[in-house]
Simulated assay, not measured.
Amino acid sequence: MANSSQRERLRAAQVADQKRRRVRVGAAIGVGVVALVAIGAMIWSSLGAASPGAVRPPNATAAGDGIVVNPSTAQPNAPVVGLYFDYQCPHCVTFEEKYGLTLNNLANAGDIELVHHTKVFLDKGNADGLSHKAANAAACADVAGVYKDYHQGIFTSAYQGAYTDELFRVTLPEQVGITGEALTTFQACYDSKTMASFVQGVEDAAAKAGVTSTPTLMINGKAQDLSTLPDDVSQLKSFIDAAAKG
């Protein structure tokens, strides 16, 4: 009887030990699964950060065909003024010089929604051309929150000769106040051509919209005859309002 009882106690101990081992193995597997899920989540998050949507500037239009200069400022039913230009276009430089400040003032006041559609057709397909570089830099400046000032800086610099990487990476950022980590981020955006797909998308959308020359001014989607624009810039709002109604 004694031996029988001893064997039963030993057997019970073995069964209990096996149960404890199964619990430990199950816990280890559970921890492993949780770790794999966490790693997977981090990888998914990283991929998401590099998704096509992430390479758009923050103030891109919903269609991805331009950049809204005055987001959340335009009054309800304000005319949408779309300006198509190429940063290497001489006529665009003179247009900006004459009408740019007035358009910006109307945008700041909420009288219009101003959208810039930056074309790069003067590069003739060269993705490393100066039009592409300027458009990419401007889009990166939107990420830095200084798009409008940077845009104006590009056109002002057009009178100083051909654009350069030094201008886009160092001179203009300094002028518009991009410094520290923001400058590092901006330069990385510029150097890696982060906005290349967005820039090309804007060009493709402009071509699809039938825009074949620059500058082109559209009011509520209708191209305007630039020769009819008022010479007196103080009358530009009245011209835009009339065109929007027509």
Score class of each variant (00 low, 15 high):
residue 2 A to Q: 13
residue 6 Q to V: 13
residue 10 L to D: 14
residue 10 L to E: 11
residue 12 A to Y: 07
residue 12 A to V: 11
residue 15 V to F: 09
residue 15 V to D: 13
residue 22 R to P: 03
residue 24 R to W: 08
residue 24 R to G: 05
residue 24 R to L: 10
residue 30 G to I: 06
residue 30 G to H: 07
residue 34 V to S: 14
residue 36 L to I: 10
residue 41 A to I: 03
residue 42 M to W: 14
residue 45 S to M: 09
residue 49 A to K: 12
residue 52 P to D: 03
residue 53 G to M: 05
residue 57 P to C: 05
residue 58 P to N: 08
residue 59 N to F: 02
residue 60 A to N: 00
residue 60 A to Q: 00
residue 62 A to R: 09
residue 65 D to N: 02
residue 68 V to N: 00
residue 72 S to P: 01
residue 73 T to W: 00
residue 77 N to I: 09
residue 78 A to P: 08
residue 79 P to F: 07
residue 82 G to I: 02
residue 83 L to G: 06
residue 87 Y to D: 03
residue 89 C to F: 10
residue 89 C to K: 03
residue 95 F to S: 05
residue 97 E to P: 00
residue 97 E to Y: 11
residue 99 Y to Q: 11
residue 99 Y to E: 11
residue 99 Y to C: 14
residue 100 G to M: 13
residue 101 L to N: 11
residue 102 T to E: 11
residue 103 L to A: 09
residue 104 N to T: 14
residue 107 A to H: 01
residue 111 D to F: 03
residue 113 E to H: 02
residue 115 V to I: 08
residue 117 H to L: 04
residue 119 K to Q: 14
residue 125 G to E: 02
residue 125 G to L: 00
residue 126 N to H: 06
residue 127 A to C: 05
residue 128 D to C: 07
residue 129 G to T: 09
residue 133 K to S: 04
residue 134 A to W: 06
residue 136 N to G: 00
residue 136 N to P: 04
residue 138 A to T: 01
residue 142 D to Q: 04
residue 142 D to T: 00
residue 143 V to S: 15
residue 146 V to I: 05
residue 147 Y to Q: 02
residue 149 D to H: 15
residue 149 D to F: 07
residue 151 H to L: 02
residue 156 T to M: 11
residue 157 S to Q: 13
residue 159 Y to L: 13
residue 161 G to D: 07
residue 165 D to K: 05
residue 165 D to W: 07
residue 167 L to Q: 01
residue 167 L to M: 12
residue 167 L to H: 02
residue 168 F to Q: 00
residue 170 V to C: 06
residue 171 T to D: 10
residue 175 Q to F: 08
residue 179 T to I: 09
residue 180 G to M: 01
residue 184 T to W: 07
residue 185 T to G: 10
residue 186 F to Y: 11
residue 191 D to G: 03
residue 191 D to C: 04
residue 194 T to R: 07
residue 198 F to T: 01
residue 201 G to T: 04
residue 201 G to C: 05
residue 202 V to T: 04
residue 202 V to C: 00
residue 203 E to M: 10
residue 210 G to T: 10
residue 211 V to N: 06
residue 212 T to R: 10
residue 212 T to C: 10
residue 215 P to R: 06
residue 221 G to Y: 04
residue 221 G to K: 04
residue 226 L to T: 06
residue 226 L to C: 01
residue 227 S to A: 14
residue 228 T to I: 11
residue 229 L to E: 12
residue 229 L to T: 13
residue 229 L to F: 12
residue 234 S to H: 03
residue 234 S to A: 05
residue 234 S to F: 00
residue 236 L to Q: 08
residue 236 L to M: 09
residue 237 K to D: 15
residue 239 F to Y: 13
residue 240 I to S: 07
residue 240 I to R: 04
residue 241 D to V: 08
